[in-house]
Amino acid sequence: MTSVADVSESNLVDEARVTPVVRRSKVDRAYRAVATLSGSVVFVVMALIGGFLLYRGIDALRISGWGFITESQWAPDMGGAFGIAAVLPYTVSIALVALFLAVPISVATALFITEYAPRRLRRFLTATIDLLAAVPSLIYGLWGLFYLQPRLITLSKWLADNLGFIPFFEVNEDFGTSLGVFPSSTFVAGVIVSLMVIPICTSVMREVFGQAPPGEREGAMALGGTRWGVVRDVVLPFGRGGIIGGSMLGLGRALGETIAVTLIISPSFDAKWSIVEQGSNSIAALIALKFSESTETGISALMAAGLALFVITLIVNTAASSVVNRSRSGSATEI
């Protein structure tokens, strides 16, 4: 007897797709509900952050109007004008200085870990990069203030003396450049922040570089390519998304960095091109420094500044995540 023959045409059930009925037990339904609920907490908190900052900052925004974007002074408590026209450019330029230094170093470090380092060193380096990320920014700030800054300003001075014709390195000092005009600058703050950005960029880039297709890699090797050839022709093109995304994640972090910048800079409210000259600022540092001395309007203005920072980092980071996710395959390991 063959069952194929037994089932006559008339007995055949319809081939149309069935929707499998899944009746979950009470426990499973509760489990899914709890997981969904805690997942939605993230949505709620994010909405609350934006909502509360707006709610608290709206008073100040009403007072300042568009001046909040165009005004560079910050004197809300004295009934004066206030705005982020100076603070925001400073924030961005600190972050850009940080990225300018951090991206090449991160690319090199990530390449070193995935391509150049001996196997045993790889694990150690990965752990070290993780440790760099775990060092509190306070410690970076202290070290930068006491150890690095006195050494770094000699470089600032050299830049001002020799490349002073570039607006970034120009110093307005009529009686010549003494070392005293270089501390607490955008440059010094940027260097410190770059140290904090490096681990973030590196870990993203390392992950993406590591996923470069081994076939192409071996192909390039088999064609007699040098290691640099493999890196240039296979790893870097493949990892471009990782480099861009990692840098943008770093940018997000650099924009919001607070304590280290607060320790380094001396607040300035006049936007200027020079990055080596004393005086800089950032939204985060502004909040940290002005918070304790502000009254009602001042707090409201700080909330508005915080909202601006929140929105900017949100945009930068969402863009970064989408770039990184596009270049990263999310496949899980199978047993």
Binding site: V13, D14, E15, A16, R17, V18, P20, V21, R23
Partner: peptide
């Protein structure tokens, strides 16, 4: 992944609840 037809264990459909 989807499917059509039926599968019975001791004559009882396993997909339709």
């Amino acid at each position: 992944a989807t499917l059509g037809g039926e599968i019975l264990i001791n004559g009882v459909d396993i997909y339709r609840g």
